[in-house]
Design a protein around this nucleic acid. Structure first.
Lengths: 354, 354
DNA sequence: CTGAAAGCGCTTACAG
DNA sequence: CTGAAAGCGCTTACAG
């Protein structure tokens, strides 16, 4: 291993000067600097990370907490790799490295020990749940962090999320515009309620749009399911000759693909018999048969926002806003069309806000 | 921040004893140990990672090099998150943390600087290419590493891979058994050749099975494509009323889904008009319409093997074998059936090795 | 513009 | 079984 002393000797200076030549925290004569860089290049010098962070009390490493327990795997696996890629990429741009903490459960002790051990300067919490113990844990530790997803108790939490409420609204509006009156929302529940913030927001947008459009809303339109088998079960009523709903909105890509699969297996055609919209856009929705009309949010944009916020916080800045919502884009594909038995049009009453 | 000295003071011992109580590298009286642990628990002590690794010259961190440039994204995104999850999980079991190095290009300089900076004890190379500069770089640095995927120059390289050759063989055998005589293999090429080892192995298995079964093989059966548009183009000949091939084997899940989509868009039915097999099994193949007959390899098994090998190497053991192939499992679904115009059966000549 | 010194919080021989 | 000391490779006041 080549140390700062080796470089100093090679360049004929004190190791202090080598340190300053690299950090730029003190002026170094041009000629000296060049000799130092040349020596460093020649010897293949790279400052030791441990020594550097011990002395400077900063690691230039950000932790990414990715809880990959069952609900997560089942719901949002598709966008997971996008987030990792984008976050790692953006962190790189800022000169930070990424310590990936995948835990099979939403346990908090690993996280805490990593923070206390001084492994990271800041933390990014991926796929934050409505009730997420990681939030309180990070606040207690007093480490800068940014949440991706919105917890119920969001006060004091810098957070980034996609605008799922608007996504659900747009989905309902699109379907209503096509003439659908009976729309169902497919949503995964655990112990009687949603787990992730985006599920709550999707339901809120769904209801809000119904109200705005003067459509009848009944809680039975929320198709709660617990797992894959449950999803098929909850779809049963839609398999009838004259189903209660003529359109389904799936909260995630996986639910959309699973619904499509389940319907097809039963001989129900999409979109001829029933329309389908997904509130996420991944390979699972754009490469499916038929391609699924979807709401696209960009994991890239979300990651970039989250990383930039965190890096600014690490630099001592206070974010001007606590909540950052990235917009959602409507992508019309082939899984939606007017219902078989179209009722009267209400197109005129549909809002056209972007 | 609470240090080892705080704990020592609280427990009334020298900090050396605290260190040994935790490391177990020296006997510590039971009563003393208990006092130390109690003090540590009370103060919330966690040894500082930087100080520890500076003194011990080991980080207990493994780097995961995931090159996410274009060929990678386009081909194998589906299994990517599975690898990250499984690797992180298994590393956790061994008490190691994971530094994720996602790079948008297969560049080697980031990797080298991380190794030289002493960030990691060992390295895991994900999605190794046939010609992969990372291999030589790691060998030059002299850091223990395990490759996931097989480079052409594999001498001295500890590597883990799925048995893609066998996967392709089984795919051909399955199709031949159904009566197919003209089978195509969809394979992504870059600058006239495959990029990843698994592509070469798939082609090798494809040819080997043809030979073993006495089927005619012609290089035009390898449908080379460069990108998504290219994939549609290369499928053209199969859209004819009497296509040259009655079955397609796709090397990856994304290629399979894209092919299915392209064929469906042209009104070609799978499996009625053409059969389709994928050499990977992900959400994209099991949730598609129809579900795609696939060869399943387990990212979990591969990750576990790779991590266990690396951890053993870090503990000073030499692996007894350099190459570890995980088996591939045949999953029959609904995308394959006998060809429309079945020729004479050659079932009897088909080998039945598992 | 540069150097000599102290210190970051641990581990690990060295002693007893 | 325990302690006192040295040292890991840096950064950063302190001096000049």
């Amino acid at each position: 291993m080549v140390t700062i002393y080796d470089v100093a000797r090679e360049a004929g200076v004190n190791h202090t000067t080598v340190s300053h030549a690299f950090s730029g925290k003190r002026p170094v004569a041009e000629a000296t600097r060049e000799r130092i860089f040349e020596a460093a290049r020649k010897l293949g010098y790279q400052a030791n990370a441990a020594a550097r962070s011990l002395a400077s009390r900063s690691t230039r490493i950000v932790g990414l907490a990715a809880p990959l327990d069952l609900p997560m795997r089942a719901l949002a696996e598709g966008s997971f790799s996008r987030f990792i890629m984008s976050i790692g990429d953006r962190l790189n741009d800022h000169g930070y490295k990424m310590l990936c903490l995948v835990s099979p459960d939403p346990d908090t002790s690993d996280l805490v020990s990593i923070v206390r051990g001084g492994h990271v300067d800041g933390m990014l919490l991926l796929q934050v749940r409505t009730d997420d113990p990681r939030i309180a844990a990070m606040q207690t530790e007093g480490i800068p962090f940014v949440a991706i997803g919105r917890p119920r108790e969001a006060s004091g939490v810098v957070r980034v999320d996609a605008d799922f409420e608007h996504a659900a609204e747009m989905a309902v509006e699109h379907l209503a515009r096509l003439g659908h009156r009976q729309i169902s929302l497919l949503s995964a529940f655990s112990a009687g309620q949603p787990v992730f913030g985006f599920q709550y927001h999707a339901i809120a947008g769904f209801r809000k749009a119904h109200k705005a459009l003067g459509l009848h809303y009944n809680s039975s339109q929320i198709l709660q399911h617990g797992d894959h088998a449950g999803l098929a079960e909850v779809l049963e009523p839609l398999l009838a000759p004259r189903p209660a709903s003529t359109a389904i909105i799936a909260t995630t890509d996986i639910e959309a693909a699973t619904a499509l699969r389940t319907l097809s297996a039963k001989g129900i055609r999409v979109p001829d018999d029933i329309s389908l919209v997904a509130l996420a856009d991944t390979r699972l929705t754009d490469l499916s048969n038929p391609p699924i009309t979807a709401m696209r949010f960009s994991p890239d944009d979300m990651s970039r926002a989250a990383v930039d916020l965190l890096v600014a916080m690490l630099a001592g800045h206070r974010p001007r806003r606590m909540e950052h919502l990235v917009p959602v884009e409507f992508i019309e594909r082939e899984s939606t069309k007017p219902p078989n038995t179209a009722g009267d049009q209400i197109t005129s009453r549909i809002s056209t806000k972007a």
